[in-house]
């Protein structure tokens, strides 16, 4: 190969590497933006669940026990903050990322001799669920 041809090849390789690096940087920047948006989305999502959902002590359901004689129960559900999250890239153009949030949903319960006493608590965790929610990222936003 002539000296000029060799030099052109080297230059070509250098430019290709630079282009690749730039593309990688753009992609990394996209990934970082998507991750940032998912972190913000999670906070909004949990707030949305609590605002529109039936969670919290103020939503306690009161009922007379069927099993115990003359006792009453107060129960409500509540959600923890997310314990972890993941974002994964996909090969689907319309949904380039999925995001996964993990949190716990807990049922709180209090049993007492009267409805009023049951409502006052104290409540204990009667059961809990490990919740995994999977979202998709489409057209620049997290879809639910």
């Amino acid at each position: 190969m002539s000296r000029i041809a060799r030099r052109i090849s080297v230059l070509f390789v250098v430019f290709a590497l630079m282009a690749g690096l730039q593309a990688a940087q753009v992609m990394a920047s996209d990934d970082a933006q998507v991750e940032e948006s998912f972190v913000a989305f999670q906070k909004d999502w949990m707030q949305k669940l609590k605002t529109h959902g039936k969670y919290g002590e103020h939503n306690a359901q009161l009922a007379e026990d069927k099993e115990g004689a003359g006792t009453f129960s107060a129960e409500y559900d509540d959600l923890t903050e997310p314990t972890s999250f993941e974002i994964k890239k996909t090969d689907v153009k319309s949904t380039p990322y999925v995001g996964v949030i993990h949190y716990e949903k807990r049922k709180y319960s209090c049993r007492a001799k009267t409805l009023e006493q049951a409502k006052l608590g104290p409540y204990e965790v009667a059961s809990s669920s490990e919740v995994t929610e999977i979202f998709r990222y489409s057209n620049g936003k997290w879809v639910y």
Binding site: K88, V92, K105, V131, F135, R136
Partner: peptide, 24 residues
């Protein structure tokens, strides 16, 4: 344990799986 699938927005009165649902 429960896994909630979000963004599976079926068209009105439809139940077909669209390509954008598949990653979830």
């Amino acid at each position: 344990e429960v896994i909630v699938l979000r963004g599976i927005n079926f068209d009105f009165d439809k139940s077909n799986i669209k390509p954008e649902f598949k990653p979830v």
